[in-house]
Design a protein around this nucleic acid. Sequence first.
DNA 1: ACAACTGACTCTATTTTGTAGAACATCCTG
DNA 2: CAGGATGTTCTACAAAATAGAGTCAGTTGT
Lengths: 111, 111
Amino acid sequence: MAGRSAYLGEFEQVVLLAVVRLKDGAYGTNIRREIETRTGRRVTIGAMYVTLDRLAEKGYLRARDAPAGEIRGGRPRRFFTITASGVAALEAARTLQSRMWAGIQLRGNRS
Amino acid sequence: MAGRSAYLGEFEQVVLLAVVRLKDGAYGTNIRREIETRTGRRVTIGAMYVTLDRLAEKGYLRARDAPAGEIRGGRPRRFFTITASGVAALEAARTLQSRMWAGIQLRGNRS
DNA sequence: ACAACTGACTCTATTTTGTAGAACATCCTG
DNA sequence: CAGGATGTTCTACAAAATAGAGTCAGTTGT
């Protein structure tokens, strides 16, 4: 059996970072926009919400519905914030990458 | 349809980096050992070879059988070296992560 | 020659992540 | 209440990650 990975997936990490970056303004559509503009990478709607849900399920993100009083058209937003556990996961990912990249210089290593 | 991802998976990146680090000494068992000792992360045999094969299939790694003349017990080793395409993939991954991490400070962001 | 030992890789199965976008829901305006 | 603007839900499927028993090739001891 392949149990739940102890490590953040590639996209999961990107999403978690976007949430941190957006602080109190992190909701689906906005997170998606943030990733697309910052990295140039295309993010589909499905990828976005599926990943957000999974991260919340793992306890890395906490979701809350938009506070009342917002005046604008459209469906209510769902905001996300990172949890202590999510921060820890990001730190672990960063440490692992840091160790693997340490001392690596890519130029002159291709065959 | 979900075509092949344009991005390196989390473990794929780790493996690619281990191959670069080991230079001419990169073969399955050794790569595995390198990742485990350097990061403390457990790597199963299956994960190792499946990923190695996938990376070779994508053109990020080139495989060659052990040169004759090696005197030691056991099955012949299969050595891997990174390709120019593999180097490019690593650079792209690094750039993306760098953009997402830019300016992020984790302390004081948990909820 | 061959059994035992070593080191390394093959194979197959299953779970978790990533990709995709149409459909649907909510609120505002005219 | 129709129509527009925003945003999220749902479902399906593809790709990546996890697992470890089994097998293979070469060496050594007898």
